[in-house]
């Protein structure tokens, strides 16, 4: 019916057609308009919530900006950046963040692939195992962090076990040397499920005939894994590594806040990450200028890291 009306409209007023009438009159144009408006809303949202604040952060980073004061925020040039580079806690947080990413992402990928390969092989209880491995990923990080704290505390289950085995009890989260790896371990454990799903999808996309061809050529299982599975999983690995890295930078906040002994990256700042430090600068010390400068540095860091991963990890492949 709509169609009919619009065509009749078109026929009667064909000479003077403004753009508006053209749009109104044409069914196809109407459809496009509808689609564009649908797309426009998220873009407005995206601009307002993501892009503009991000750009504004650059501005704030160059100013002496106390979060509680509504007064003037004088321009101070690179002062905030210089202060950050001289700040040993900030440097420590950057080093820690790199440790989190290197060990955490590598561990995630490694265990994700192992679990996916094992699950790919079995035919029974597949669903059951997938659920088991996926549950940690959908469990509250805060709850998990506190359970880990209780398990690992001086009088916790793990230390009981160690003593029963005749080993010395360990300080775990109370030790500046061990705490960061304990937290990374908890994060890896939680992320295995997500990586597993990605890798399972990747494995299922590898054509079976390649393995059959390799069998005919007399390849060992290791050769098949290394020369067939890994190259063909490459796109998944790149994606996982990039997503894992960004994810690690983000979630290292909640885990650190809830698992570190003093709730702010201790002991002795051994578990503090850049994100936790940014939070402290902004909302504990109210120094929005410093916090924004740190955020800009973090942004550049993530950008560089992502470009690096894309360059190094992406390789062309064909069957």
């Amino acid at each position: 019916m709509t169609n009919k009306t619009s065509t009749s409209n078109k026929q009667t007023k064909e000479q003077k057609v403004s753009l508006f009438q053209k749009i109104r009159g044409n069914h196809k144009h109407q459809q496009y308009l509808f689609v564009y408006i649908c797309l426009l809303l998220p873009i407005i949202f995206f601009l307002g919530i993501r892009i503009l604040p991000t750009l504004f952060t650059f501005n704030v980073g160059f100013r002496d900006w106390n979060l509680l004061s509504s007064g003037p925020h004088p321009f101070v040039g690179l002062e905030n950046y210089v202060a950050l580079i001289k700040d040993e806690v900030f440097i420590k947080s950057v080093v820690n963040t790199i440790v989190y990413i290197v060990f955490g992402v590598f561990g995630q990928l490694l265990f994700g692939i192992i679990v996916a390969l094992l699950l790919h092989k079995i035919n029974r209880f597949v669903g059951f195992f997938r659920v088991i491995y996926f549950i940690p990923y959908v469990t509250s990080i805060v709850a998990i962090s506190w359970v880990f704290q209780w398990i690992l505390m001086g009088n916790g289950v793990i230390n009981d076990l160690l003593i029963n085995l005749g080993l010395p009890p360990q300080p775990f989260l109370n030790s500046p040397d061990q705490a960061i790896y304990v937290i990374i371990g908890a994060m890896i454990w939680q992320a295995i499920g997500f990586q597993m799903v990605l890798f399972l999808a990747g494995l299922e996309n590898i054509p079976q005939m390649l393995y059959e061809a390799a069998d005919i050529d007399g390849a060992t299982p290791w050769q098949k894994f290394w020369h067939v599975t890994v190259p063909l999983l490459n796109p998944t690995i790149v994606f996982s590594a990039v997503i894992g890295t960004i994810n690690f930078i983000q979630v290292s906040f909640t885990q650190v806040m809830n698992m570190s002994v003093d709730g702010s990256g201790g002991p002795l700042n051994s578990t503090i990450t850049v994100v936790v430090y940014i939070y402290q600068l902004a909302f504990r010390q109210f120094d929005l200028g410093l916090a924004s400068a740190a955020t800009v540095l973090l942004f550049l860091f993530i950008l560089a890291l992502t470009l690096f991963q894309m360059k190094v990890l992406t390789r062309k492949f064909d069957y």
Partner: peptide, 30 residues
């Protein structure tokens, strides 16, 4: 929460604060 409302100009008239925070708030002209 307090800090987030300052730029929006929608803060409180009477505010309850921990005494240890007061110097920071006075310093910021709040």
């Amino acid at each position: 929460q307090v800090a987030a409302q300052v730029p929006a100009g929608k803060g409180p008239d009477v505010i309850n604060l921990f005494y240890g925070w007061v110097p920071s708030y006075v310093d910021a002209g709040y």
